[in-house]
Amino acid sequence: MKPILSIQNEELILQRYPARENDTLQAWDSADEYLINTLAERNLDPTRPILIFNDSFGALSNWLSTRGCIYNISDSFIAQQACRENLKENAKASINYLNCRDSLPKNPQAVIIKIPKNNRLLKWQLDQIAQVVSADCDVIAGAKTKEIHTSTLRLFEQKLGETHTSLAVKKSRLIFCRPNSHRPSNPSTEQATIWSVPEYNFTLFNHVNVFAGEKLDIGARFFLEHLPQDPAAEHIIDLGCGNGVIGLQCARLNPDARVTCVDESDMAVASARENADRNLTNPDQLNAMMNNCLTGMQPETADWVVCNPPFHQQNTITDHIAWQMFCDAKHVLKMKGKLRIIGNRHLGYHVKLKRLFGNVTTIASNNKFVILEAEKRPTRTTS
């Protein structure tokens, strides 16, 4: 049975993306419900834009789709694909999609924000919002109560104007903000960062929503020491690439191979592309693309897949993304192609790899991380 959100005399079928059988994770939360119930009390003008930021799986966009000119703004390919699928499932009107680097429509009547986990992304979004809102615009943000801090309220005050919060309902709270008509016309904006990794001669560019925005994280630093160098390799995939630093080093170690960097974040993909242009002698050696893992990629076309799997989706801890990455990697690898991953020691990825590939080798480990490798081998048949 498909999960249904019953709210305001409407039933919405809402699933995470990609849809999985017997998924125990819900595609909406109490902050979505609180926002919808609050918006239901307002008279919305169907001719003026409504901007929705960080709509995790489309709950807000689905409910609002018939109530105005809707813009879904997100850095997440998966979140927007979920929204598209849920709109189709509910036979709702199509809406407009923007990434976080796109220009926003002017003079919106309302701006709805699910507060993101990354505070730098929130600052970036508030800076962009400040450029287009007028004093009659309702800005309403929602999140779990534990995710709204005094510093969050100060940020809304600083970037937009007078701010107050609601009472908590089902452990969620709303922020209400009224843009100040006298705010600076050109406020300071959150910027992408540029920093160096001298031991690898890299200069790295990071958009605001890309992990490790100011220095190389310890996992990436360890992984860089143990990447494949294979003269026979023709195609290497950096899956979940972030700023592309792992793909860059793979390109340098394997100058005759094509390298494909894949991530579901638009800002990550844009950062990886920028970093290839900055750091590679032949930038065309590296291609960066946005995708849900390796969906739609041709089978048996890669010699290597390297990966640092995430263990959360939005704010939910889960291992299904890692499992999908491993399954997709096996699909696109050539026979005898190899998947090499890094993960925290406690995550137990060796069990998953052994189950899927039938083999797993420990390449390196320290007190925090383990680097594992699995080879795609012919499936054994019994007579």
Rank of each mutant, 00 (worst) to 15 (best):
S74W: 02
S76I: 02
S76M: 05
S76T: 04
S76W: 02
S76E: 02
S76V: 10
S76P: 05
S76R: 04
F77K: 11
F77C: 01
F77T: 06
F77D: 06
I78D: 11
I78R: 07
I78L: 14
I78Q: 07
I78W: 03
I78N: 13
A79F: 00
A79N: 03
A79E: 02
Q80P: 00
Q80H: 02
Q80S: 04
Q80I: 02
Q80K: 13
Q81A: 07
Q81Y: 01
Q81I: 01
A82I: 07
A82S: 15
C83Y: 06
C83Q: 10
C83F: 03
C83E: 06
C83W: 05
C83S: 13
R84S: 09
R84V: 10
R84E: 13
R84P: 01
E85H: 10
E85D: 11
E85P: 00
N86F: 11
N86W: 08
N86L: 10
N86H: 12
N86T: 14
L87W: 11
L87S: 08
L87H: 13
L87C: 12
L87F: 12
K88M: 11
K88S: 15
K88C: 07
K88N: 14
E89I: 11
E89A: 15
E89S: 14
E89L: 15
E89C: 09
N90I: 08
N90D: 05
N90L: 09
N90H: 07
N90K: 12
N90Y: 07
A91R: 12
A91T: 13
A91K: 14
A91E: 11
A91S: 12
A91V: 00
A91H: 09
A91F: 02
K92C: 15
K92R: 13
K92Y: 07
K92H: 10
K92G: 14
A93Y: 01
A93F: 00
A93V: 07
S94W: 10
S94Y: 04
S94M: 13
I95R: 06
I95G: 04
I95H: 07
N96H: 15
N96F: 08
N96Q: 14
L98T: 12
L98S: 08
L98R: 15
N99S: 09
N99P: 01
N99D: 13
N99K: 08
N99A: 01
C100H: 00
C100D: 02
C100K: 01
C100E: 07
C100L: 05
C100Y: 00
C100W: 00
R101M: 11
R101L: 13
R101D: 06
D102K: 03
D102G: 08
D102W: 01
S103Y: 01
S103P: 04
S103M: 06
